Amino acid sequence: MALLPDLARSPALREFTYWMHRYRRTWRGTVVVNVANPLLFLAAMGVGLGRLVDDGGSDHLHGATYLAFFAPGLLAAAAMQNAFLDSAGPVFQSARQRGNYRAAAATPMRPADILTGHLLFTGFRVLTSALAFVVVIVATGAVPWRHSLLLLPAALLTGLAFAAPVAAWAVTVTRSTRINGVFRFVLLPMYMFSGTFYSTTQLPDWLRAVVSVTPLYQGIQLCRELALGTAAPLDSGVHVLYLAAMATAGLLLGRRTYTRHLYG
């Protein structure tokens, strides 16, 4: 029990508490982007378009309905989007001269604590949005509840694989247009071509090779295999190791960039 007071006084948790305090005042404005948009997209594409796909039949779905195929892909893509939105613009604004990072850096809190606390908050946001999504897809029958139990950690890992590297980069950004550019020319192409809407086996070989090394593809494959009950230990292990390596590399790089730019 003595560990609990020490944990509560952790500098990283103090930073997390700051972001949660802000979130209490802004959460209503994020519901549409983080929860409602993916659910509406699920209804339009998974249910609406899915009926046409199911009627026509497709060997690329391997016997699954389009909704069951599409839902876990959208879950991973939503985790990517939510992680980017919470770790790009907010980090950029916080690192500016009058941002809250500057105030935190003037205290005994280390840059690594600031980064870790912000990533804890981003993970919380990804996890709660994923929970709402998973509840809906289980309720619709797209995914059996017994297959849904591992979807939450898979979505969280996918989100952190983006959040940590993006935060490490965003703290160095001096113009917001660069963040918009990355969203348009990096995230959106991944969203479209990494298998969210269709099997990547339909892509040309050269494009499929490029797509297969992206973190979103790894997250989609992990979530889809878990949802459909087709996960194999070796394949799933590769996806988990890839995503964990991305998150770890982002965390290590972020410690350096946060130190350089907050104390520079």
Rank of each mutant, 00 (worst) to 15 (best):
residue 2 A to D: 15
residue 6 D to G: 15
residue 8 A to K: 15
residue 8 A to S: 14
residue 10 S to N: 14
residue 10 S to Q: 14
residue 10 S to W: 11
residue 11 P to E: 02
residue 11 P to D: 06
residue 12 A to R: 06
residue 13 L to K: 07
residue 14 R to P: 08
residue 14 R to I: 14
residue 14 R to H: 11
residue 14 R to C: 08
residue 15 E to C: 13
residue 15 E to H: 12
residue 17 T to W: 13
residue 17 T to Q: 14
residue 22 R to D: 13
residue 24 R to D: 12
residue 24 R to C: 13
residue 25 R to W: 14
residue 26 T to P: 13
residue 27 W to I: 14
residue 32 V to E: 10
residue 32 V to M: 11
residue 32 V to F: 14
residue 32 V to A: 12
residue 35 V to A: 08
residue 36 A to P: 07
residue 37 N to P: 08
residue 37 N to A: 13
residue 37 N to Y: 14
residue 38 P to M: 00
residue 45 M to C: 04
residue 45 M to K: 04
residue 46 G to R: 02
residue 47 V to S: 03
residue 50 G to M: 00
residue 51 R to N: 10
residue 52 L to W: 09
residue 57 G to H: 08
residue 59 D to L: 15
residue 59 D to S: 15
residue 61 L to K: 07
residue 61 L to D: 09
residue 62 H to W: 11
residue 63 G to T: 04
residue 63 G to D: 06
residue 64 A to S: 12
residue 65 T to A: 05
residue 67 L to T: 02
residue 67 L to Q: 03
residue 69 F to Q: 09
residue 69 F to M: 06
residue 72 P to L: 05
residue 72 P to V: 08
residue 73 G to D: 06
residue 73 G to M: 05
residue 73 G to Q: 06
residue 76 A to T: 10
residue 78 A to M: 07
residue 79 A to W: 00
residue 81 Q to I: 10
residue 82 N to H: 10
residue 82 N to W: 01
residue 83 A to Q: 04
residue 84 F to K: 02
residue 90 P to A: 01
residue 91 V to M: 03
residue 92 F to L: 03
residue 93 Q to E: 10
residue 93 Q to D: 07
residue 93 Q to Y: 09
residue 94 S to R: 09
residue 94 S to C: 04
residue 97 Q to A: 11
residue 101 Y to C: 04
residue 102 R to E: 10
residue 103 A to Q: 15
residue 104 A to E: 05
residue 104 A to D: 08
residue 108 P to I: 04
residue 109 M to F: 08
residue 109 M to A: 14
residue 111 P to K: 08
residue 112 A to V: 12
residue 113 D to Y: 01
residue 114 I to V: 11
residue 115 L to P: 02
residue 116 T to D: 07
residue 119 L to W: 02
residue 119 L to C: 06
residue 120 L to A: 11
residue 120 L to Q: 04
residue 125 R to F: 07
residue 125 R to W: 03
residue 125 R to C: 07
residue 126 V to P: 08
residue 127 L to F: 13
residue 132 A to P: 05
residue 134 V to M: 01
residue 136 V to F: 01
residue 138 V to P: 00
residue 140 T to M: 04
